[in-house]
Nucleic acid binder design. Sequence first.
DNA 1: CTCCTTCATCGAACATATTCAAACACGGTT
DNA 2: AACCGTGTTTGAATATGTTCGATGAAGGAG
Lengths: 271, 271
Amino acid sequence: MAQAETDEGRGLLAEQRRAAIAAEVRARGGVRVTDLVLRFGVSDMTVRRDLDALARDGLLEKVHGGAVALGESSAHEPGFEAKRTLETAAKEAIAEAAAALVPRGGAVALSAGTTTYALARRLTDVSELTVVTNSMRIAELFAQRLRPPGARHGATVVLTGGMRTPSDALVGPVADQAIRSLNFDLAFVGCHGISIAAGLSTPNLAEAETNRALIAAARRVVAVADHSKWGLAGLATFAPLTAVDTWVTDGGLAETACAEAAEHVRHLLIA
Amino acid sequence: MAQAETDEGRGLLAEQRRAAIAAEVRARGGVRVTDLVLRFGVSDMTVRRDLDALARDGLLEKVHGGAVALGESSAHEPGFEAKRTLETAAKEAIAEAAAALVPRGGAVALSAGTTTYALARRLTDVSELTVVTNSMRIAELFAQRLRPPGARHGATVVLTGGMRTPSDALVGPVADQAIRSLNFDLAFVGCHGISIAAGLSTPNLAEAETNRALIAAARRVVAVADHSKWGLAGLATFAPLTAVDTWVTDGGLAETACAEAAEHVRHLLIA
DNA sequence: CTCCTTCATCGAACATATTCAAACACGGTT
DNA sequence: AACCGTGTTTGAATATGTTCGATGAAGGAG
């Protein structure tokens, strides 16, 4: 097992190296094979095989020259790393703006997704809040914060049941039925695509059905989606644009798109 | 791979060696077999067997070349972790025996609890199995193992919804309603106390209600509880002993208790 | 076209599970 | 005390699996 010179990760187990690669992809949006070769001091073939394994596990997507996080098809452009990190910035900005819409003492629903997850992080300290979600990650977030004091108890969390999708959403009849027995002031829903023709859409049929239930149980619907999702359509539409009371997005949305969107949603909020 | 001479830890008891390995994994995130061989001065096979035992106890995950800490997605709860170290051997034995009751291709329910968690660890590889649970920890366990999508699909997991108790159970009307819409062959339920007068009981009222729903939806009920729970009664009873088809417990139960219990439950299974 | 990336194949080194036997402690009997 | 069966822990041997790097050919990107 001969190792090379640069050796930040010399002696790591193969599994640890893969975990580090996966973390890098999550953090930066993408990695290059050549960079990983230098960083870990292994051959390019070993890195490629790691990327193969991770891609098979659905943790990233291989592209020419390296690998990128899932969910973005336009990865061949130069500078996709920068774009990707900007999008996390966009998500944080959207989350910040959306959090301001949450009423004290209210009941809100959060769909599964990375944008709603960013929003959830800002709601853990809001007291007297009730949160309904079908995301195990979001539920865990609140469970951790709920621990230390007995005094000021933060939000109450209700997790819908269901079966777990690869993207960590709980879906299916169990989830839908649970949601239908509840009512909340506000539903924050993420999506994979948002457009005039297809409205809010996702590639997962079951997730679409669950999102429909979330929307039906809410008095008002807030869509959270960054500008890169405008014009995209997933397999299943779960709501027309007219069902959206407020769309919270980031400043990257083109002016023409802003104007178009504003005609269909009630309020357009640029973070 | 043969012997070693550096023997920092030679002469340690097996348990001490294992505790040291577990601590190392927690501290550094991973260990390799060859390093442990040098450090303890034992053979590679001995190290492997230690890692096997620790992996069975859920303290680490074996990988090629060594072992790594478990996925960090599992939120560490003191309430849960504290109980995990109690009566470990008995719980593992009970889990082993209970796992043998699970039919291939069946649908089973697992209540929340440390004993059912130990049982769940033995069910992750059973194929064609459907598992219903109100424990986020158990659901996470299966989600981790589910990774290779096409290859060998393990169990299908349905998580009931609800609100989270300190001991990691999802309870409340949402959970109860979800369970009532399902049916399963077998329900494995843990409890805080089991006695002739109070039957199966728990200190948490909501959890009792949820367990009642689980029992009502099951054709057969299997109670899993170690001997230390015999004679105890929590605030809320959720089932009389006569509702229990099989009680799986460990050899620590006194003979007089065995005889008493056997009169009330249909089958008594001593692991 | 040229440069770089990717992939398939192979051999070497390493890791693993399985099996068997030796060493040791324990508990009770003679 | 010595003896013996039982069960546990450990190390060695072997066959099988896995990881990894070198090589060279095929295929994209610019």
